[in-house]
Design a protein around this nucleic acid. Structure first.
Length: 574
RNA sequence: GCCCUGGUAGCUCAGUUGGAUAGAGCAUCCGCCUCCUAAGCGGAGGGUCACAGGUUCGACUCCUGUUCAGGGCGCCA
């Protein structure tokens, strides 16, 4: 059940009945508590179109709605309709939530989604810049699956291209010097830096690196063997990060750039057949309307370079082709940085012109910005100035461990370890997910690893407080029987918020902004904390005690599910 | 030069197809643990929503211009 939708339908119907064409109730959650729980804003716009008095029109709509046993309605201000849910209705709705395994969230019509996210470059270690795509994409995946969609995770890792030349040449050199490769590869970042340094300083090495690129692309067996060894090591590294981060990606979700190598000539042929290809300066290009470069010159999408090589435009087109035709996806989501916006626009446009994307299929780019340091300078991907993702995660867990030592010394070492992991990792992910920005964002160590205020630990803490209530008197939450009996304002606020979980979930999938769910959960936790202070649970007498226990259990379930959708774990004590 | 983003409290950010008095967290200040976990609760201060016009009953939101910042614009990805 979706309260907002329910009310919107109801008021819209009444508006239509009183003769308003194209009626839209525009029901929203009330901005201020004195306005009730919801407000309909659509009357004023309708009155304007009809050139009538908005308050009089509102009165007509109200008359049409009549006496409602569930709702208290009133006209306010210039023509708002304020809606308050009556206590009996709230109690009944809560009962419905309590009996719903899905916390009142309906499943959507099942469609096929491909979600392209994370996509690290395997030549390097994962760094802080990968966090956003990975965490937001994973949340999108979890939410879509919760809504009953078929989701195919697509980890489009970079495992091909020129940067592998120097890596392979370096591996070859080390091997010939009798070095143990596997130990050298432990620190991928250092390995990459050493190789690049050699590439820049040693002309003989650079030329060897370039020849390795050619040999790799030509299918040279020795090169391929080295390449596979490197890719395997790098993939293991990524998986370790995913596991630590509680990301649902696995090795089977990897469909690397190289997986499309064989299809690239076919893509060129197909574009040729469609008469889209034009040769320009020796490169095979597609020129489309609406793409203008410098000096008003048409901007090409380069499909094949003059040296015969394929740029990532070709690979991305092959990926579109695969997702649209082979997987037959209805919707494909790209969680990719904002700097790729023009590129992806080109990819989608060329793919559409080529007939790869059908009318029923939707490809969307969900962009996000750079990671900046507190001094507004970007994290660069070279020179060792980057913060490695593993280091950030370990630091977060360490800080959380120091805190749990201080806050709850009574826990066993094992429990502390678990709490530190869950809280530390949760804080990192929540810091990412709770921001809506599609532009740059500041990574500040202290902000990101803060455990106070609007953070994951706050939500996790609210959860443990509830669990603590049940634990104290050995109450099994699923075996509480009785009715909801709401009297205190804090109980009403909590009740309404619990009923709005579905609205938050639906809000996410419009533009895949996880912060909508974060904001909801933070509100819910805050309202619960106030309720916790204002309304004793265990010391109350029935019917309040039972009702409050039921509210606690529903809150715990909602927090747990909401955090789970964000990929954040909970603990029983912290 | 052109295109895309963005500019909201000291800092980090919300603000849902235009709605009522622009909201949180952090930081600062004042209260609250004989009471279910103080990683908490209650309260206070803090704003020219970059700037200037326009559209209208009503603009942080839409339009135009200006400005500042970031990104992108032919063979790196």
């Amino acid at each position: 059940m979706n309260l907002k939708q329910l009310l919107d339908d109801k008021v819209t119907a009444a508006m239509t009945t009183v003769g308003i064409a194209d009626a839209k109730a525009i029901v929203k959650q009330a901005q201020r508590s004195e306005f009730g729980h919801y407000q309909a804003n659509g009357i004023m716009g309708a009155a304007k179109r009809q050139k009538t008095n908005p308050r009089e029109l509102a009165a007509k709509v109200l008359e049409q709605l009549g006496d409602d046993k569930d709702l208290q309605l009133e006209i306010a201000g210039p023509g708002f309709i304020n809606i308050t849910l009556k206590p009996d209705f709230l109690a009944e709705a809560l009962k419905g939530l309590q009996n719903s395994h899905r916390l009142g969230v309906d499943t959507a019509q099942s469609r096929v989604f491909v979600v392209d996210y994370s996509a690290p470059n395997l030549a390097k270690e994962m760094h802080i810049g990968h966090l956003r795509s990975t965490t937001i994409g994973d949340t999108a995946v979890r939410v879509l699956e919760f809504l009953g969609q078929k989701v195919i995770r697509a980890n489009h890792v970079g495992d091909w291209g020129a940067q592998f030349g120097s890596l392979l040449a370096y591996m070859d050199q080390l091997a010939s010097q009798g070095e143990e490769l596997s130990s050298e590869l432990k620190d991928l970042e250092k390995f990459y830096q050493s190789a690049s340094a050699l590439f820049r300083s040693d002309e003989a090495f650079a030329s060897k690196a370039r020849s390795f690129v050619v040999r790799l692309q030509g299918g040279d067996e020795k090169c391929l063997a080295l390449w596979k060894k490197f890719i395997a090591e790098s993939t293991r590294h990524c998986q370790a990060v995913y596991d630590q981060l509680n990301i649902t990606l696995t090795a089977s979700d990897i469909r690397a750039e190289s997986a499309y190598n064989d299809v690239l000539p076919l893509v060129v042929d197909e574009l040729e057949e469609r008469q889209l290809l034009v040769e320009s300066d020796g490169a095979k290009c597609v020129f489309l309307d609406g793409f203008i470069g410098k000096d008003d010159k048409p901007l090409p999408a380069i499909i094949q370079k003059s040296d015969g090589g394929y740029p990532y435009m070709a690979t991305d087109l092959a990926a579109v082709r695969y997702r649209a035709s082979t997987i037959n996806a209805h919707e494909v989501l790209y969680f990719v940085g904002a700097q790729q916006q023009l590129h992806l626009r080109q990819v989608f446009a060329v793919a559409t012109a080529a007939g790869y994307i059908g009318d029923h299929q939707r490809f969307r780019h969900l962009p996000f910005g750079w990671v900046l340091k507190a001094d507004n300078t970007p994290f660069k991907t070279r020179d060792g100035a980057d913060v490695k993702l593993v280091d950030v995660l370990n630091e977060a867990v360490d800080r959380a461990h120091r805190l749990v030592d201080e806050k709850n010394p009574g826990l066993s070492p094992e429990e502390k370890k678990t709490v530190a992991r869950v809280v530390g990792i949760g804080a990192i992910k929540y810091a990412e997910l709770s921001k809506n920005r599609t532009t740059d964002y500041i990574f500040d160590w202290d902000t990101m690893l803060s455990f106070e205020g609007n953070t994951a630990p706050y939500l996790q803490y609210a959860y443990t407080r509830i669990q603590s209530i049940f634990r104290r008197e050995n109450i099994s939450p699923t075996e509480i029987h009785g009715e909801f009996h709401l009297t205190d304002p804090a109980e009403f606020r909590l009740a309404v918020k619990l009923l709005q979980f579905g609205e938050a979930i639906n809000g996410i999938i419009e533009d895949y902004q996880a912060n909508i769910l974060c904001n909801y959960l933070f509100d819910l936790a805050g309202i619960f904390m106030s309720f916790y202070e204002a309304c004793p649970v265990l010391k109350a007498t029935d019917p309040h005690r039972t009702s409050r226990l039921l509210l606690c259990h529903l809150t715990a379930r909602t927090l747990h599910k909401g955090l789970d959708l964000l990929g954040i774990e909970t603990v029983e004590q912290m």
